[in-house]
């Protein structure tokens, strides 16, 4: 039997939801661990094999000086480094601190803020090290993990969309809630991947997968204004799980009264 490639899963500042997504792969998990050797995945097993690793999946953003160092070591120990989820690819919900004073937060939350060492901003992994592939979403679509690993094993390109949620909606036969209901929706500027979950149940897209390959956030914002969304409302729409993604950040600041 040929050697299975080794896989490591790393956690930085995150909620662990994307890692849990891997464990939620009930039908595929056994095939997956048969195809790759899980060398380090402490949320799954305490048995850890020393690196280097063929593939690393990295969850979470960089928010502390320690983590800023640790990611360098992870990069060093990894063949391919794939970031998973909105935190790792765009700073996550915790990047809301980027628009505020984190010192003020720590002094409000902690009795002894002097023990807290944290960075002023929450940043994506790509701000610190070279990233080979990014999987978006809050949380990720766990089947995209299977797709990336399978593609890697087959030596082919992963089929991961860069197009808009609109394309996913139309392929699924969803009604456009923005046009037919006047619902504020980030679908036209958001990357597909979730399966257009929210428009399928008549909710506007929240932008969990971050910006699509091409975006025109200013044009969408003009339309949202016409539909009656307030300036604050527009700013908040663009400022959620991917608030540090360049395109969303810029548009949220445009409407930050």
């Amino acid at each position: 039997m040929t050697m299975r490639p080794t896989l490591a899963v790393w956690k930085f500042a995150s909620c662990d939801g994307c890692q849990l997504g891997i464990l939620d792969l009930e039908d595929e998990l056994l095939s997956l661990v048969g195809a790759v050797q899980i060398a380090s995945f402490t949320e799954m097993t305490s048995a850890v094999i020393d690196g280097p690793y063929d593939v690393s999946l990295v969850e979470g953003s960089i928010t502390t000086p320690d983590d800023a160092d640790r990611i360098l070591a992870v990069r060093e120990a990894s063949g391919l480094l794939v970031t998973i989820g909105a935190c790792a690819t765009a700073g996550g919900i915790q990047a809301l601190r980027n628009y505020a004073d984190v010192g003020e937060y720590t002094s409000t939350v902690y009795a002894h803020p002097e023990y807290i060492t944290t960075l002023a901003e929450s940043s994506p992994i790509s701000s610190y090290v070279k990233v080979d592939f990014e999987l978006r979403g809050c949380p990720i679509n766990r089947y995209q993990i299977v797709e990336v690993v399978t593609a890697l094993l087959a030596g082919r390109r992963p089929v991961i969309p860069g197009y808009s949620v609109c394309e996913e909606c139309k392929m699924a036969g969803n009604l456009c809630v923005l046009v037919a209901h006047g619902t504020a929706c980030l679908g036209p500027v958001t990357r597909a991947g979730c399966g257009a979950l929210c428009p399928a149940v008549n909710r506007g897209c929240y932008g969990c997968f971050g910006p699509a390959d091409t975006t025109n956030t200013a044009s969408l914002a003009r339309r949202l204004t016409e539909l009656g969304t307030s300036e604050r409302g527009i700013s908040r729409l663009f400022r959620t799980f991917n608030s540090a993604a360049t395109e969303f950040s810029k548009e949220s600041l445009e409407h930050d009264a």
Binding site: C166, E167, P188, V189, T215, N216, S219
Partner: peptide, 13 residues
């Protein structure tokens, strides 16, 4: 191009 969202809706409908 200043107005187009490049979302593809026109082609899909």
């Amino acid at each position: 191009a200043g107005r187009c969202l490049a979302c593809g809706n026109c082609t899909l409908v």
